[in-house]
């Protein structure tokens, strides 16, 4: 699946992955790949601007993990992020129901 297909959905996918618990960028991207069975073919480096944007928007917060062998930034969902994820899930379910209604 091309990166273009992810447009508009990447944010909620990232929130869903981080909702399971604090994670650093590589772990987030690996989990995204695992859950999608490798379907999302996007340059991994371009996920970081999205993580930064979600943090700027108050949906994620981050901190340096000083216990890691290298400097590592760990992301965590905020209360606003949890609400955003819930709303994103609702929007997606409504969208897929509508598409399935047409295609069925």
């Amino acid at each position: 699946m091309r990166a273009e297909s992810l447009k508009g959905h990447l944010d909620v996918l990232l929130l869903a992955v981080v909702a399971d618990g604090p994670a650093h960028g590589y772990a987030v991207i690996e989990e995204l790949r695992r859950r999608s069975a490798g379907a999302f073919d996007l340059p991994e480096g371009t996920v970081y601007p999205a993580l930064h944007r979600l943090e700027r928007g108050g949906l994620l917060k981050s901190r340096w993990d000083e216990t890691a062998p290298r400097r590592r930034r760990v992301y965590e969902l905020t209360a606003k992020g949890r609400r955003g994820l819930s709303s994103g899930r609702g929007d997606w379910q409504a969208f897929t129901a509508a598409v399935e209604g047409v295609l069925a």
Binding site: G25, E44, T46, Y48, A68, R73
Partner: peptide, 29 residues
């Protein structure tokens, strides 16, 4: 710092070349 950590993690599993290729061209990122 985040890019270095990501690339080192990825290289541990798939090697440097694959890690760099998957991260995307520097100008794109």
């Amino acid at each position: 710092a985040e890019s270095r950590d990501h690339l080192m993690c990825a290289a541990e599993h798939d090697g440097d070349a694959e890690a760099v290729a998957r991260f995307g061209a520097p100008e794109v990122v």
